[in-house]
């Protein structure tokens, strides 16, 4: 079960990219992000970043996590054929990670760019607690879920991670799984981006795994069921978003019946 792919495409659909099949032209670079205050309502501003090597300005605002002005950002994305509404070539899917290195905080006015309204897929949000939901019905089989993380982060991203964690916990409960394997990974192998060498610390694999295990515990999964481990330098997951590096920053949850 490739949850990651499903969520990516639901996000792309929510942002209006569904009709634009990715051309599988991955780009990755480090830049100082620029916020363009296109006002299409809540959470609607544009995020732009220039790839110094190509000179291309990209629209990087379509990812799960938005950048922060004043901090450099690692951008990994695929060029899409979407209409430019922000002042940059659209990357979709796109992953952005806030880096510790500082840079000037820059904001632009709309300058006639319309921007786009914020939308979130219904599949990316959980209902309120008081909404009754039946547990997944049988038949059951061993299942695996994947939760991706931002570069150098163990933060469980909102409107993404909780949906997967909730689905996993409910399936584990319904199926009576005997063992739950929680495995954290960190992309410790160095990669070159914009002339810099980047990698994740191996300790991140552990904290990612422990974060997921703690979240599952709070969702009612018995800690005695869980086997928590961590590894470095993982293989990428075969995926259809054209981006291998982001897939290495992950935790897998495997329910064994």
């Amino acid at each position: 079960m490739c949850v990651k792919g499903a969520v990516l495409f639901s996000l792309a659909a929510a942002l209006g990219y569904a009709a634009d099949a990715p051309t599988l032209k991955p780009v990755s670079f480090i830049a100082c992000p620029v916020y363009r205050d296109t006002n299409q309502g809540r959470k609607s501003g544009c995020w732009l970043a220039d790839d110094h090597e190509s000179g291309v300005r990209y629209d990087i605002g379509g990812g799960r996590a938005k950048p922060q002005i004043g901090h450099e950002v690692l951008v990994e994305g695929v060029v899409a054929n979407s209409t430019d509404v922000c002042g940059g070539a659209v990357l979709a899917p796109v992953y952005t990670a806030v880096l510790e290195t500082r840079c000037p905080a820059v904001m632009l006015p709309p300058e006639n760019y319309p921007g786009r309204a914020f939308q979130v897929s219904a599949k990316s949000v959980l209902p309120p607690m008081d909404v009754e939901r039946p547990l997944p019905p049988p038949p059951y089989e061993s299942q695996q879920w994947v939760i991706q993380f931002n570069f150098q982060s163990d933060f469980l991203l909102y409107q993404y991670s909780e949906v997967i964690l909730d689905a996993a916990a409910r399936y584990i409960k319904a199926s009576g799984a005997k063992r739950v394997l929680v495995t954290g990974y960190a992309a410790t192998k160095e990669m070159q981006v914009s002339g810099r060498t980047l990698s994740e610390p191996s300790a991140l694999a552990k904290t990612r795994a422990e974060s997921v295990a703690e979240a599952l515990r709070r969702l009612g999964v018995d800690p005695r069921q869980m086997h928590v481990s961590w590894r470095k330098d993982p293989e990428p997951i075969a995926s259809n978003d054209g981006l291998e590096e982001p897939s290495k920053r992950r935790v897998t949850i495997r329910a064994e019946l």
Partner: peptide, 20 residues
């Protein structure tokens, strides 16, 4: 709406800084 910025707890999650 207005631009909410530099507020830990809000801008530090995945909404970005600033966020409208």
């Amino acid at each position: 709406t207005f631009l909410i910025s530099d507020s830990s707890g809000l801008n530090s999650m995945n909404f970005g800084n600033p966020t409208r």
